[in-house]
Write a protein that binds this DNA or RNA. Structure first.
Lengths: 211, 211
DNA sequence: TCGAATTAGTACGATATCGTACAGATCAAA
DNA sequence: TTTGATCTGTACGATATCGTACTAATTCGA
């Protein structure tokens, strides 16, 4: 990673639009990147969630130079930036290619499980899962998350997030106030969540054991 | 494809279980393969849908020999079967590898859009979309689909499928009776569907223009 | 041709979420 | 410390779907 540049992003930074050429690949450290679906009525929902276990550039890894989706920084923080040309030449190295291919598989699996989860589980379970995932990347820090923001990730109304979040707080699983949120009972939140959290986590462990 | 064997599958055939070694890759002709999520309570929902535009073996394409998901034949029919060893050696050919990499990207995109659709759109829209997708592969033939079956694909109750299907039939968009279903008004069904149908279709056209 | 099995229609109370709106709480900047 | 902006609590009727159950229609095999 000698040729990487450390960059810092604010939340909501859009990395690129659909159809743009990929000029760099990002390996998040503390930042978190989302792939979002946006619909005609302005509603949004998250399709994929890239944290420090993974990276962007899946299409580039598979030989395609232009972007198929919009990537947006969801949680501000740092990421390592690798220019596309350097990334592509690194792919010629056996080990690097192996890791990247594993990353693609992990992301695909995550997207599958999350998509099924969207259809099968309710807002409470999905919110719990999302918070657990973020908590794993936050190193004990509080997280800057508003209900409004979470509603865009989960594809539900803000009022629904508020209702469910209040419930979880009532039960002592999380705390929050004005855009700051923290997990206070990981185990309990896991119970409030669905099996999808564990499934994704163990798939990452299997595919990327050294991450 | 000289080394392919033409095989015929009944619906509901399970191709393999999680953790099994991939011994063959399938290129559906008339068959359709699903990747299913199954939950503790026995409920299921489709995570990916592989028809003749694509193939199985994504993990193998990316260097992993064991399966991460359960693949099941959802619509009986024919498929070309290519032994894993032969598939892997074909991947050394530039063109074949390019096509397979594009297929992986197309499937990933489809999974993303479908997953978001699960969270954002209602049963009527999702059923319409599913039927349109199947219709595209059925060459004008009727399709063997029961409401019960569709409920497992969409992750909703059978009664919900019946209600929505009756609506669509009322409007002249589809016909059905005892496990046989047909699309009678493609354009109308497209209106009943969500934008996700077109998004997936155009992504396949972009990534696999010759398919 | 009849009976069993499969498939579909439908009902109904319960629940989740929508869609919208407004008020109260908290924070940040002047 | 005030003020405006942001964030959260909450209400309420509407709608979608659940969960379940029972009945009716159709098909297929004996």
């Amino acid at each position: 990673m000698e040729q990487c540049e450390l960059v810092e992003f604010d939340a909501r930074t859009v990395l690129h639009q659909v159809g743009e050429k990929t000029n760099a690949v990002y390996f998040p450290e503390s930042a978190v990147i989302s792939v979002l679906a946006t619909y005609g009525d302005g509603s949004t929902i998250e399709m994929a969630n890239i944290g420090r276990e993974a990276c962007t550039g899946i299409n580039l890894t598979l030989g395609r130079e232009t972007q198929l989706t919009v990537n947006e920084i969801q949680v501000g923080g740092t990421a390592l930036k690798l220019p596309a040309a350097r990334f592509v030449s690194l792919l010629e190295e056996e080990y690097f290619r192996h890791v990247l291919f594993s990353t693609v598989q992990a992301v695909l699996f995550q997207v599958m499980v999350s998509g099924a989860c969207n259809g099968a589980h309710d807002a409470r379970q999905r919110l719990s899962r999302w918070l657990l995932t973020m908590h794993d990347r936050a190193d004990g820090q509080h997280m800057n998350l508003t209900h409004e923001f979470l509603s865009h990730m989960l594809g539900v109304r803000r009022a629904t997030v508020s209702k469910v979040a209040a419930e979880l707080r009532e039960e002592g699983l999380i705390t929050y106030s004005h855009g700051r949120m923290a997990v206070t009972d990981h185990k309990g939140l896991r119970k409030a969540s669905c099996e999808c959290y564990d499934r994704v986590r163990s798939a990452y462990d299997t595919l990327l054991p050294n991450a």
